[in-house]
């Protein structure tokens, strides 16, 4: 599953204002509302579900990356977005490092395979230090989008 299959370009936030875990999850979820990917009426429910998942164990998977996510019946296909925190956010991540790159995923409950393949793609790309670095330095949403498209193109080629 390529980035372009699930990342909503209008929801990309290259410089989030939030400084806390819940704050950034809320900001990213709101960006999906603004992009028309989830409805405003579901916002609270989705934020709550994502936070509940975080309670079970942080999705800060190391290397400054977090993949907050939830299944939610209100979406019919996997939707996601990318945010970058220049300051870094305490995410209680597995390696204790602050999180700068966030990929938020909301998936339909009956599509575990899509969720797995999105995680696969994210983790595969994020093992590449150069990719992480350029992503953190991306200026605007279009820059982020271009990097994701490049990564997509490379993963098809390889």
């Amino acid at each position: 599953m390529k980035f372009s299959d699930f990342v909503a370009v209008e929801a990309i936030r290259p410089n989030v204002a939030a400084t806390t875990k819940e704050g950034v999850i809320r900001e990213m979820s709101q960006s999906l509302v603004d992009a028309g990917k989830i409805t405003a009426g579901e916002l609270e429910s989705i934020v709550k579900a994502i936070m509940k998942r975080e309670d079970l164990g942080s999705t800060g998977i190391g290397r400054g990356v977090a993949v907050p996510h939830t299944k939610h019946p209100s979406v019919s296909r996997l939707v996601g977005t990318v945010a970058i925190s220049q300051a870094g956010i305490d995410f209680e991540s597995l390696d204790g490092e602050p999180v700068q790159l966030l990929f938020l995923l909301v998936s339909p409950p009956d599509r575990p395979g899509d969720h797995l393949r999105a995680l696969e793609n994210i983790s595969r790309q994020l093992r590449d230090d150069a990719f992480c670095k350029t992503l953190k330095e991306a200026g605007g949403p279009q820059d982020v989008w271009r990097l994701l498209e490049e990564a997509d193109a490379q993963s098809i080629a390889s």
Partner: peptide, 12 residues
């Protein structure tokens, strides 16, 4: 490595 394990995308 959790990142490595996730790249397996191992389904049920």
């Amino acid at each position: 490595s959790i990142l490595d394990l996730l790249t397996l995308a191992a389904e049920a």
